[in-house]
Amino acid sequence: MNKYLAISIACFAFLCVLSPAQSRATEALAVPTGKVVLTVGGQVTLPNAGKVTTFDMAMLDALPQVTMVTHTPWDGSAVVTFRGPLIRDILAAAGASGTKARVIALNDYAVMIPASDFNEDGVILATKRNGQRMAIRDKGPLWVIYPLADRPDLDVYGTYAKMAWQVKAIDVE
């Protein structure tokens, strides 16, 4: 009985933690004050610039941050520490909902990612690499990062294609 009680309490606590974000997400986002680095378009319910929701780097930093330590196919054998918000949090902040999202890079490279990846795999949109902001020349400023180190099943060619860098927009469909 104590076990169930403990689980119930844990669930309650979790909901309590989530509830302010949830409540905040329902609120209209502020207009970015800095340079817009990300535009979330498509089925967005909380737009802040027309039909899209735009984010500056501060807005993204305001979202809950996740640190992810992993290797990538672009860094050789080196292990790199990425940090940034979960994409699902970004989409939630934009009030976006859909089954998939088109992630578009600065050079117009685009890749379709199913929404389940964001909800289940904990994919982040990294804003920092090894604690540093990423320049465009270094695949910045935003980079879709999958937890390759923690999830070997994801460490495959298909995943690499979805790990777009120089991300500038996400269109939710």
Binding site: P73, G76, L106, I136, R137, D138, K139, W165, Q166
Partner: peptide, 14 residues
Amino acid sequence: DLLYSRFPVVLEGQ
């Protein structure tokens, strides 16, 4: 910047 970011990909990308 974009052009620059491509050089490492070609020269170093695994």
